[in-house]
């Protein structure tokens, strides 16, 4: 699968990774090479095979509904890039 510039732009936006114009061709060629490589999978017929998402097909373990956490805001926000009055600050969100 050869990816064109438009697709690279779309993926970069979905993934929220800025790609400089000068790098687009490089990304297109590298990602296309990787996709060609993984497409070898098509050599194997997988019709009627159930997908496997978790090793050993385990099932979910659940916990009881109890509050086990207490307020650690100051501690947790000590590593934040920007906070004020206990809030994380980000560039203005326009809905």
């Amino acid at each position: 699968m050869a990816l064109d510039k438009q697709t690279i732009y779309k993926i970069s936006r979905l993934a929220r990774i800025h790609v400089d114009k000068v790098d687009i061709d490089r990304y297109a060629s590298q990602l296309s090479t990787i996709l060609d490589f993984v497409e070898q999978m098509n050599r194997i017929d997988t019709d009627n095979v159930a997908p496997l998402s978790h090793p050993q097909d385990r099932v979910l373990r659940m916990r009881e509904d109890s509050v086990t956490e207490h307020d650690r805001r100051d501690d947790l926000q000590s590593v934040a890039p920007m906070t004020e009055n206990g809030l994380y600050l980000v560039p203005k969100v326009i809905e």
């Binding site: 109890s66 509050v67 086990t68 956490e69 805001r73 947790l76």
Partner: peptide, 26 residues
Amino acid sequence: TNSKIFSGASTSYGAKPNTQACEVDI
């Protein structure tokens, strides 16, 4: 519920900002 769906933080309403957001929630 008393606690969140995937963490042990409280779900009660009206607490000070981010005081009920534990390490899993953030």
